[in-house]
């Protein structure tokens, strides 16, 4: 079954993937004392954008100003570099297993256009939610579980619990 590794259908064993991911996460904690993340990089991008377009507005806002400091740009943030690494690493894996291809993946029951709208709406909700929870599935839930933080585990349960519920409501989008 593994004779054709480059046609895009080969994935590594999920348990192997899990152990490797766990080792990456552990290494992150061992070296930096913090976990992995993803949405924080987008937050830095948002803060930088707003700060460039309307600096006064950014300084007056109660939210942006928490992440602004005079000497360092919020863009030069650990998470931004980490996410650039994620893009590079995923590209590498995509090349190795033959998955580099421009396409929109969607259920045969819906149009590609509908899928894109749902994706954007989902992304927006994820963006809002990740700010409330102070992290997303990687930063709050996964990293939080590794250090057994209450906030991480509660957030994880809230994400997966409600996703199970909502997934059945939006079943048509997927199967």
């Amino acid at each position: 079954m593994e004779h054709n590794k480059r046609d895009g259908s080969f994935y590594i064993n999920p348990y192997l993937g899990g152990v490797l991911l766990g080792l990456v996460l552990f290494a992150t904690y061992y070296v930096t004392g913090r976990g992995l993340g993803a949405s924080g990089a987008v937050k830095s991008t948002v803060v930088t954008t707003v700060h460039t377009v309307a600096p006064q507005h950014a300084h007056n806002s109660g939210y942006y100003s928490q992440f602004l400091s005079d000497d360092i740009s919020p863009m030069s943030n650990w998470l931004v570099f980490e996410v650039l690494g994620v893009l590079a690493g995923a590209f590498l894996s995509g090349t190795l297993y033959g998955r580099l291809k421009f396409k929109t993946e969607h259920s045969p029951k819906i149009t590609g256009r509908r899928r894109l709208i749902a994706a954007a709406a989902g992304g927006m909700l994820f963006g809002i939610g990740s700010q409330f929870a102070r992290g997303c599935t990687s930063g709050a839930a996964l990293s939080g579980m590794a250090v057994l933080s209450a906030s991480g585990i509660i957030t994880m349960m809230a994400i997966f619990g409600s996703a199970y519920l909502f997934a059945w409501i939006f079943k048509k989008l997927w199967i």
Partner: peptide
Amino acid sequence: GGVIMGFGFAL
């Protein structure tokens, strides 16, 4: 936040 993210996940 978790519930909102779960909603976003499903969409």
